[in-house]
Write a protein that binds this DNA or RNA. Sequence first.
DNA 1: GCCAGTCACTTGCAAAATGCAACCGATAAA
DNA 2: TTTATCGGTTGCATTTTGCAAGTGACTGGC
Lengths: 118, 118
Amino acid sequence: MTEEHRSKCPIATSLDILGDRWTLVIVRDLFTGKSRFGDFLASPEGITTSVLADRLARLERFGLVTRTPYQERPLRHAYALTARGRGLKSMLQELCLWANAAFPETWVPPASFMAREG
Amino acid sequence: MTEEHRSKCPIATSLDILGDRWTLVIVRDLFTGKSRFGDFLASPEGITTSVLADRLARLERFGLVTRTPYQERPLRHAYALTARGRGLKSMLQELCLWANAAFPETWVPPASFMAREG
DNA sequence: GCCAGTCACTTGCAAAATGCAACCGATAAA
DNA sequence: TTTATCGGTTGCATTTTGCAAGTGACTGGC
């Protein structure tokens, strides 16, 4: 990548992109079919507009998300995962399995999200 | 958990604990056998002492790490993963697979780390 | 036409987190 | 006695975050 990474460790490199409290929440929403700015704002975690705009731009810069207009005048964009972004699914599934085991009060994700092919 | 979480989504709850640029780097080092304060400082990413002390204390609070003395006078502690912490291995393996595919310049982890049982 | 509302942001600012360097106490080594 | 090591803490400047308000381009109702 063009950006400077702390090391070539795959975990550290991943965290340079995904390592904050919000980015994977947005990726989760993209997996569940959300695509518009307002959709992400509506999630229960309560992301703010400034952080959301920043994270979407970063995900686009790193090639995990594409932004395409869904209407002109006023110009409005829809966000979607690229193949690179969709590749995070197995990792997110494992994270959910871990969280469900470690913190039993967490929600069990829908089977459609946890399915091997999907 | 006693701490307030943003939602009961397993991903959001996980990020309340692991969602920063440093925590999973420390967990990675614990998986590779590092156990002392100075061991973590020596990693190439260059964590600072204040952030390291804060993250180790947080990991202990959430039950991912235990701290036990390896000597008295002066009292020195070794850190180790609990079962809950070790449960992150599958997720980290998937994260490495994703990073290696998305960013080919990243290191391929040792087979011992990527093995299914281990 | 006028006003209210929506949508996707940007801006400004206070608060919190981070990075950096210096310092500290206990002890061992020279 | 001086120096080094180890595992931190403290202080401070910089950066990031959270929060609220504002903006621009419309749409719909009357």
